[in-house]
Structures are given as C-alpha cells and as structure tokens.
Amino acid sequence: MSESSRRQTYWRANIALIRNLLLVWALVSIGFSILLVEPLNQIHLGRLPLGFWMAQQGSIFVFVGLIFIYATQMDKLDRKFSNKDK
C-alpha cells in the first residue's frame, strides 16, 4: 500500500470508530435520558425509574467507558498501521 492510501485507510477506520462511539453517546444521553425518559420510567432499576437513573447515573458511566474504549481501540489501530512500516 502506498503511503497516502495507507493514511486514508487509517483515517477511515478512525472515523468509523468515532461514528459508532458517538452513536452510543447520543443514544444513552439524548435518547434514553431525555427523549425516551418517560416510557423508560415505567421500568425500574433497583428502586429508581430507569429513565431517571440513566439521566443521573447510567449515562455518566457509559461516557467514561466510551473514552477508554476509544483509547484502547486506537492503540490497536496505531499498532496495526505502524507495523506495516517494517
């Protein structure tokens, strides 16, 4: 692979990863915690309505997870593309 097409493949893989993670990000915050909060509140997690729990606890846990998933997945991607150099 040429240098520039290799860069393009790397960048496309990065964009795809960012897109997927941001979809999850939007789903838990905008989706579950705001737009769908009322139907989700019919279900309970522990003693709390689920929509309320997502808005005040769950979404924050997911946010932390997403950043670490991005960092470790990018490590893999960086490794894959730097090895092809040699």
Binding site: L21, W25, S59, I60, F63
Partner: peptide
C-alpha cells in the same frame, strides 16, 4: 450532570 460530563466524550 450529563452536560458537564458528556462533553468529555
């Protein structure tokens, strides 16, 4: 809660 944490993503 969400506004001041979600931005870090």
């Amino acid at each position: 809660l969400m506004g001041w944490t979600g931005g870090y993503v």
